[in-house]
Design a protein around this nucleic acid. Structure first.
Lengths: 229, 229
DNA sequence: CCCAATGGTGTATATCGGACACTCAGAGCT
DNA sequence: AGCTCTGAGTGTCCGATATACACCATTGGG
């Protein structure tokens, strides 16, 4: 099957920077390319957009096909369209950022992906195409997002300690924060619900576990509330 | 001439939201479409991306062709690719925001554009495609940008009064600011050079004119300086 | 000469952000 | 049982920042 157009034009792809959080470190999901170009290299999951397919639907589909992951939160980063970024010819890619709770998903490589694995987001391997630049841009996006929106809660399990959250924020920002000041702000937001439950199996005093009050956040937003950490 | 591909796929266009500032109001440059679809309707300037053409180069080219404008500052907003946004078939557009000093450019419609004119950015006419949504997004972008980056200086003439700048910021934000507090912050930034010249032809005390210290801003940026108004 | 309109200027107060250190709880080990 | 280790939990002070607020000066025009 083949299709004709009056003018030559770039192709459109989507790529997803999927972040997860595990072992105190921000991680990014990469696939090993099973096809040329860059066969055997690590890359962001993604692929061509189908005709009449929404961009975010395409990103979700490619993620599902290549890695088995179905993210809850997926938002557009921006388009990358520098000439020469794809050796097959000019392609414009629309990059997305997705956040997943690592425990909720097991990664399963398929279709174009020979393998799919989590890597440290701040120390990734060499990447195909211009994916290193896209990842860099996504990390900058996260630095902004983690301070101004409650994104941490999409990366942590449903229940988490205040320290869990702080370590995550520190990992994204790449800098350490003061425990008391962090908690002061956190409580001031009023978005944490104490569960009454505690960590188990830790060789020290167990930290209390909290839950994110999504309903309250939604209603605060309507009143012009601005999240800030 | 015709080109063939193995798979059907969306086309790529660029659209530019060009902002200017005049008569105390933020303005946006629109063209009247000279071709179907939406012939006769107002729309953002833009068009198809050529093969092997960078996205920003395409946006600049379309702007030049359709309106005669060559903006200094052009930055990507994001991609819009919702199915059905273009009646000709699926097209993905990458939207840009451009800022121009109104006095430096005279607008000249050509090629696909039957006309090109400035409209109030906060009260635009009905627009073709999903351009109203793109404009909305661009305005939100400006609200963010005007507080965190010295964008006002790209919209004003080389010399301007403090009040000019304040009125511009107020027009973008859609809210009024306190004169003394605004000037306090402005002076604290240390980015205004007094020119010693004054307004002329005004029926009141003439305001002193200033110039933006771009060199100083560039050097401050390297030291991790964050602009904030 | 008076009026209208805007230019230009400082202080006092509330709020926010950042620095900073100790005690307590619980698990594991001897 | 007692000791040790690790991280949990908690409040104050100070400096910086943001906001509210009012009057006189200057100029052109009528």
């Amino acid at each position: 099957m083949s299709y004709s157009y009056e003018y030559p034009r770039p192709s459109v792809t989507v790529d997803a920077v999927v972040f997860g959080y595990d072992a105190g470190e921000l991680r990014v999901l990469l696939i090993e390319r099973g096809e040329e170009p860059f066969r055997g290299a690590w890359a962001l999951p993604g692929g061509f957009v189908g005709l009449d397919e929404d961009l975010d639907a395409a990103a979700r589909r490619e993620l599902r096909e290549e890695t088995g992951i179905e993210p809850v939160l997926l938002e557009q980063l921006r388009a990358f369209g520098t000439r020469g970024r794809d050796p097959r010819g000019h392609t414009v890619t629309v990059a997305f950022v997705a956040l997943v709770k690592l425990g909720d998903h097991s990664v399963q490589a398929a279709t174009d992906a020979a393998d799919a694995r989590w890597f440290p987001a701040n120390d990734p391997p060499a990447l195909a195409f211009d994916h290193a630049a896209i990842l860099q841009c996504a990390r900058a996006h996260m630095i902004e997002a983690v301070r101004t929106r409650p994104v941490g809660f999409d990366l942590l399990p449903a229940q988490f300690s205040q320290t869990d959250l702080q370590k995550l924020v520190e990992s994204v920002l790449g800098e350490e924060l003061d425990k008391r000041n962090f908690r002061k702000k956190l409580h001031a937001l009023g978005l944490l619900l104490p569960t009454g439950e505690y960590e188990t199996g830790v060789p020290r005093r167990a930290a209390q576990l909290y839950r994110f009050d999504a309903a309250r956040y939604a209603s605060l937003l309507k009143e012009g509330f601005q999240f800030r950490l």
